[in-house]
Amino acid sequence: MNFREYKIGSRFFALALGGSMTITLFMPSLDIGSVSATEIAMDKQLWAGHESGFSLEDPLLLGWHKPYKVLLKADPKTGQPMDPTYAYVYEKGTPFPGGILHPDNLGPAAKKLSIDKGHILEANKNAGAVFMVKSEDQKQYYIENATATLGWTPEGVLKTAGDENTQHAAAGKSLFVREGCWWCHTLLPEQTQDWQVFGAPPMLGDFNGESPTAFGSDRKAPDILHVASRNASKEWMMLHFFNPRLVQPHSIMPRFDYLWGPVDASGKKIDFAKWRAEYNEYREGKRITPPEVPMYASNSEIRNLIDFVMNLK
């Protein structure tokens, strides 16, 4: 390689590639790194948890070690009724999201409030914690560690809320990633023309702490970032997931009936072969009504997925 031209060439190459990476990586990182988290970003990272894709805590994306979002209508300590409030429950061993682990991620103002008033640095993974998104002036939001400030325990909060007010949205987002929903349904209404149909595009600070963002790139189906604002019917979702063509005859969405698992809500075994045979008869006009879609069990995967979709407001 002892050739003067190649020495010059390799220096130019380093300059070109290094310059390119300075402009496309270093300079944007200054901008993106200085973005403060919005209320949406705090809510999202708290309900979605540390990581929705592959992680050592949940290698098969089965929804292990995920937080719960619960709607509290009574104080878990005193039992006194209170204004309905959302809380995010991290049981023992559940990894905390980016904003708790790295408060810089929240932006300077939210970081200060979250540490001083919210006591988020006192949260301990081995003990579990309950978080809330708070604001005093409805402008600057911060995260509060209710375990430190109010003494709420994860077990107590889950018990007070009850299963019907507990959303398995984080486990659902893992399913969204595992089942490849995002190959067709984007999570990114476009800035140019999606306002009317799919709702407001996300803003700059709406993603802090979220991983993966899973925007999707190929929109073979409607954008679903705000789907629950358009359609908040769990029953419709249930029919649609079991067989999309029950509610939308022209849909090309796959069936997700396998997410029901072996048994329905009453513990009865689901006979998928029989269901499909009856559905085919219905399609051929031999039956007037399609077969009944079984109600899903509360610990089934489809429950997690529907909870996730219901959270996309």
Partner: peptide, 21 residues
Amino acid sequence: VGNLPEYFHLTGLTEAYLTWW
């Protein structure tokens, strides 16, 4: 560089941008 978000758990827009980078 492109997999830094996975190695070091970078999140949010950084993750989204590095994915496409």
